[in-house]
């Protein structure tokens, strides 16, 4: 984590940048929206279970979008579901993150040509932070995706971005 792993003994004061503390807090308790779509959801559930233990990274499922920080799109997104996903995403409070899990959510997967009912990639309706490849990805792959997301959050800044002239 980089922030609290240095030992300190004689004082209970830690000096750190606000940004670092904010980012550390955010990345250490990413609550995911309890929500699964297809076979990827089975792998996601396996990742939550004791063998892979999502909870050690602070990830735990919340049954309401209003308490969730991250939404894992775990499976095939049908057009009918896409409208619902968009609404769920809009109900989540900022800052919010999206992990697109598996080939279907990334690009439409095996439905890319004849899937008249499938959205060819969740990034057509909501902005994705991390893409996890695989069909379905193993739990290790999803954990890797989560670590990538944490890396991304660690470099976030609270300052407004300078406009590039």
């Amino acid at each position: 984590m980089g922030l609290l792993d240095k030992e300190f003994s004689d004082s209970n004061i830690v000096i750190a940048k606000v940004e670092d503390v904010m980012n550390w807090a955010r990345l250490s308790s990413l609550w995911q929206l309890s929500f699964g779509l297809a076979c990827c959801a089975i792998e996601m559930m396996a990742t939550s279970a004791s063998h892979y233990d999502f909870d050690r990274f602070g990830v735990m499922p919340r049954p309401t979008p209003r308490q969730a920080d991250v939404i894992i799109i775990s499976g095939t997104v049908t057009l009918k579901m896409a409208t619902r996903i968009k609404r769920l995403y809009e109900q989540m409070p900022d800052p919010k993150y999206i992990i697109s899990m598996g080939s279907c959510a990334n690009t439409g997967g095996p439905y890319w040509e004849h899937g008249y009912h499938v959205l060819k990639g969740i990034d057509r309706i909501i902005p994705v932070d991390v893409y996890v490849p695989g069909c379905p990805p193993r739990p290790e792959a999803l954990l890797e995706g989560l670590l990538k997301l944490q890396e991304k959050i660690r470099t976030e800044t609270l300052r407004t971005k300078k406009k590039i002239a």
């Binding site: 057009l79 896409a82 409208t83 439409g108 040509e113 008249y116 959205l119 060819k120 057509r124």
Partner: peptide
């Protein structure tokens, strides 16, 4: 298109 979403790959 369906509901503003493009369907073909």
């Amino acid at each position: 298109y369906y509901d503003g979403m493009k369907i073909p790959y």
